[in-house]
Design a protein around this nucleic acid. Sequence first.
DNA 1: ACACAATATCTTTTT
DNA 2: GATATTGTGT
Length: 663
Amino acid sequence: MLPQLPSIAHVPDFAAELNEQQLAAVTTEARFSLVIAGAGSGKTRTLTYRVAWLLAHGVPGWRVLLLTFTNKAAREMLERVRKLVGPEAGDIWGGTFHSIANRILRRHAPLLGYRPGFSIMDTDDQKALIRNLVKKHIGKQSKTSPFPKGDTLLSLLSLAVNTMRPPEQTLREDFPQLLKHEDTILKIIADYTSRKREANTMDFDDLLANLHLLLEKHSEVRELYSRRFLHVLVDEYQDTNALQDRIIKQLCTGESTGLMAVGDDAQSIYSWRGAQVDHIFEFTKNFPGADVFKIETNYRSVPAILDISNAAIARNERRYVKTLRPARPPGNELPTVVPAPDNHTEAQFVAHTIRQLLDSGMKGREIAVLYRAHFHCLDVQMELTRQHIPFRITSGLRFFEQAHVKDVIAYLRLLANPYDEMAFRRIAAMLPRVGEASGSKMWQTWTQALKKHETECPDEPVRDFGGLMLPAVKVPPAAQASWSSFLATMSSLRPADHELTPAEMISRVLLDTEAYFTVHYENYEERLEDIEQLSRSMSDTESLDDFLAQVALLSEADRDHVEGNDDCVTLSTIHQAKGLEWKVVFIIFLGEGMFPHSRTIYSSDPREMEEETRLFYVAVTRAQDLLFLSYPRYNGHNPDSHFCPPSQFLTSLPPELYELGEA
DNA sequence: ACACAATATCTTTTT
DNA sequence: GATATTGTGT
């Protein structure tokens, strides 16, 4: 029984504002509970009211941990809780597994042998490092037995970490075609791991793996957090992987911490990141005595769209039995299936229909175009531009991953962590006549000088980079001038008398990189503008570590509230559309081999097609009022097979559920 | 030996 | 449009 003392400003009327199934989940007193929430059934609502209910019954905000799939989801939920109960919600720990891991590791990473201020590697850094190592371990590619690409090794390693299997086992089970290179692969992986270590960096997977290790090896830390958190809530539970699941258990099974996991097995679409639907199926086994709640009333879609959704997911055998019941009255129109002669006509159809909708008074923000892969939207993008329809893309390349942003960030990373090899090499490569070879030499002498500095003045961060590095590091004559200037800039970022904010640091770094940008980037003015926007949007971040963590962990999707135009049509991959909804949804490129992707069609593992089916289900369930499903009969993008039959997702739909349209 | 420019190739999904 | 490979110049 929970104490009845609300510590909050407002107590919502739970019984009045929730339906019966939602209320049951929100008010449960079971220590462990699983909430199966169908698409559009008010999952977020349930979760936020659950948090409010806890606060209303005397649980302080700081003792609640809310784990979400994206930072954006965390922000939105905390915002909604705040509206519900008042400022008390601000103390809640909310964020992605990665960001929470970062938060905890910032404090305790030295227990695992890291120096303070470790940096976070992004995907580019990972690739650069592993490619470097592949090159080192096998000088020349043999033509007869080509060695796998660095990227493949990274996905192998990532899968191993996230599924908590040793690399050897993952290699045998998921990459048998690489077995003949086993020895070298394992050596490279070992090398990769130690290089990250030496550079005092963690990649995304390390954040999770190290949090797990920390809680496993240091019971005092585990107790600190499992005592602190009275309630852990996990959103999108169907997409947790083995490692994340272990972390949840570490936090919840030790003492008396309660756990509520919310998810929908039909919407699990991240198995390629190691997510296993099985966790949701085995919840009651893993957490004995757990209660299972189902929320099945769909408030989002008209019944006709719901019929399509149910028909789509019916292809999959293995799922929790639940029936989505429509709360909305029937609409006038059936979803429309549109075969187009070719991809260009398809795009024209989409743009044309959007134009009509806008003219009839609909807002751009109420419309979305969804697709399987980023490049599917190229034609639509062109067509919308041509017709002057504003749109916004949740694009493939993310803001923080653009070269010029990373160039600037590299300075700050190196300042926070002078052992950050990837940051160093990025900067070195910007110097004239410095490439990979001289970069390596410079890095060696750089670290030697650092270690010398460390033994001579322990715990004293480097301030005079020029004094330390000019005599130690040799650079090609052509690079000497820019090298000195770089070192001077680095020194200026850490003045003796006061501390600079990250925004101030950026403007100093820009002075140094501006010349390089003007020469190397065509559109350098835009790029400068980008960076200024970056430092503006982060101007409230005071600490360098916080700033760098945000840059590394926030994705483009998390940033979209920054930009103001909300009358744009949304173009998005289905993955990025998860959790969102629009009045009108177009799903394009529904051709066999495009969606489902040809790889899944030829795959021997039936689970791949099941996941593809769930992805289609996710797409369809985003729509509230109108749904258009289109495909090009002739696909100009694919040079091998131009002719493109309709997706099996379309052909398997009962024809009475939709009407045929014309492009 | 190395940096750098030019050319060919190909697109799944993301913290 | 970005990256992997190949070719050319210092």
